[in-house]
């Protein structure tokens, strides 16, 4: 589904990703772990086309078609969703209005007619329950005045609404208490379909207790330095990253 070859990307002229390769197939859950500053969030930003980052080399294909030239909204409509690490607040814009615009853009792209108010409401009510989102939250402005946990749940709610084929969860566990973490993870699992894929970006093992990855990658210094099964995450949890980073420095020299 997603193929990344020799990806180099930089921000303000500083190279962050330095030749990253990744293959994600439909139905798989990939975890990308790594120490701070290794390039995890850059990868998610580049995948959704954040204009602050520049791809200097390499290619990304999504369902066989190149992605790098696509605008952020095209990527979204093609089925890529990012749960932001820091969701932005948009004062005055109601969640309802926001989501309705987004959902209908997606439908337009697929050649479907826009949802009527009634249909849309029904859909919202269904999806809210997935993440146990307080009904009042959707009547408020986008993320405005939401607590940390509410913001993350709201991200997963939006994911439920847009039904992406590839979901990228960027540090979705950060700042969540254990209950919120469970709710978010249940939401993600609930939305899992055989034809979809998920990339979980995280610093810690604990989210992976709830969302079981098929493949675990370690990102360090802009490259994937190790790939393994779920056991790799456990190993990282107990041993930390030092042994890996040393290994990779050795192999580099």
């Amino acid at each position: 589904m997603l193929t990344i070859k020799d990806l180099h990307a930089s921000i303000n002229g500083k190279e962050i990703l330095k030749g990253l390769n990744l293959q994600v197939n439909a139905g798989e859950v990939h975890a990308i772990m790594g120490p701070n500053g290794s390039g995890k969030s850059t990868l998610s930003a580049v995948l959704v086309g954040n204009p602050a980052f520049e791809v200097t080399r390499g290619e990304i294909t999504f369902k066989g078609e190149p992605l790098t030239e696509c605008s952020p909204e095209e990527r979204s409509c093609r089925g890529i969703f990012l749960s932001f690490q820091y969701p932005v607040e948009i004062p005055g814009v109601s969640m309802v209005n926001f989501m309705r615009t987004a959902v209908n853009e997606h439908r337009k792209r697929k050649g479907e007619t826009p949802l009527t108010a009634g249909e849309f409401l029904k859909m919202m009510r269904e999806k809210q329950s997935v993440v146990e989102l307080d009904k009042n939250l959707v009547n408020r402005s986008v993320n405005e005045g939401f607590s940390g946990g509410e913001k993350k749940r709201n991200e997963i709610f939006q994911m439920a609404m847009l039904e992406p084929e590839l979901a990228i969860l960027d540090e979705t566990d950060s700042g969540l208490d254990i209950d919120a973490l469970r709710i978010v993870a249940n939401g993600v699992n609930h939305l899992k379909r055989p034809g979809n894929a998920t990339i979980v970006i995280t610093h810690y093992q604990r989210l992976l207790d709830y969302i079981r990855p098929d493949v675990v990658h370690v990102l360090y210094n802009g490259r994937i330095v190790k790939t393994g099964g779920p056991e790799l995450a456990l190993e990282l949890e107990s041993k930390g990253y030092d042994w890996l980073t040393k290994e990779s420095t050795c192999s580099n020299t």
Partner: peptide
């Protein structure tokens, strides 16, 4: 960008944000 990521084109996003 947040609006874009959810599939909302920039022109429309401006309308939304300005109305908000």
């Amino acid at each position: 960008f947040y609006c874009n990521q959810r599939g909302i084109p920039t022109e429309e996003a401006v309308g939304l944000i300005v109305n908000g």
